[in-house]
Computed example of a mutant assay.
Amino acid sequence: MTALVSTLVLGGARSGKSVFGEKLVAGSGLTKIYLATATRSDDEMAERIAHHRNRRGFSGWTTVEEPLALVDALTREAGRGRAVLVDCLTLWLFNLMEAGRDPEVEAKRLTRYLGVATAPIVMVSNEVGLGLVPETPLGRAFRDAQGRLNQIVAATVPQVVFVAAGLPLWLKQEN
């Protein structure tokens, strides 16, 4: 087994990216931390959260819910002997924008943390720039912010993988 390193897992909706990220963390042999950024904003989102929980099971995973203070949660939870799955950066970005926080400031804070992290962190994020141009200014602003966030995180971590149809395509593999 090779040692797990911090990894960005990209993909579209229902591409298998979360499952792939879960497998990376589960296969590490380390204590598994699931850092969830979703909020139960409505019944449909509550169902999505339940689906994710049920799929990975309850044994062996510690779930931490943190929709905004991602770096603070990572500072608390990521330590030696642990691997953290952040699912997902896309919802975290949405939460930041909805709360009126500056996504670029928060992204820089995250990448500074990733540069000194002692535990492997696997981050799941949507690649939203492959579809149609959003119709609204807010939609375009979100798409652009997501693209910038993905780029800055990808430049920081040693591994980046794109998942489509459940299949991984490694974009970056450094040791």
Rank of each mutant, 00 (worst) to 15 (best):
G115Y: 09
R140K: 14
P120H: 00
R109N: 13
A145N: 11
V128L: 12
A141H: 12
I121K: 05
R148V: 11
P158V: 05
G139N: 10
G129N: 08
A155M: 13
P134N: 11
G131C: 03
K108R: 15
K108W: 15
L149M: 09
F142C: 05
L110F: 10
Q146C: 08
P158H: 00
N150G: 01
Q151F: 00
T118F: 01
T118E: 10
A155E: 14
A154Q: 12
A119E: 09
A117N: 10
I152R: 14
T136K: 04
V116I: 14
R109G: 05
L138S: 07
L138G: 00
R112C: 14
K108C: 15
G139C: 10
V153F: 05
V116S: 05
M123S: 09
I121Y: 06
P137G: 02
L114F: 02
M123K: 10
V133Y: 12
V157R: 09
G147V: 09
V116D: 09
G139P: 12
R140M: 13
T111F: 11
V122Y: 07
V157K: 11
L130I: 13
V124F: 08
V124Q: 11
D144P: 14
V128S: 05
V122N: 03
N150V: 07
P120T: 04
G131K: 03
Y113N: 04
V124W: 10
I121C: 07
G131N: 03
V128Q: 03
G131R: 02
P134E: 08
G147Y: 04
S125F: 01
T111W: 05
S125C: 06
R109I: 05
L132C: 00
I152N: 12
V153W: 01
L132D: 00
D144T: 15
E127S: 00
A107T: 15
T136M: 10
P134Q: 06
P137L: 08
E135I: 11
G131I: 06
G131W: 07
N126K: 04
V157Y: 10
N126A: 00
N126V: 07
P158W: 03
M123P: 13
A154G: 09
T136Q: 01
R148S: 00
A107I: 03
G139I: 14
V122C: 08
G131M: 04
V124K: 10
Q146K: 06
P134I: 09
Y113K: 07
V153R: 03
A141Q: 14
Q151E: 08
L114V: 04
A107W: 02
S125A: 13
I152M: 14
E127P: 03
F142W: 12
Y113M: 09
V116E: 12
G131Y: 02
T111N: 11
L132R: 03
P137C: 01
N150A: 00
L114R: 01
A107R: 01
T111E: 13
F142M: 07
G131H: 02
P134Y: 04
Y113R: 08
V124C: 12
T136H: 02
V157D: 10
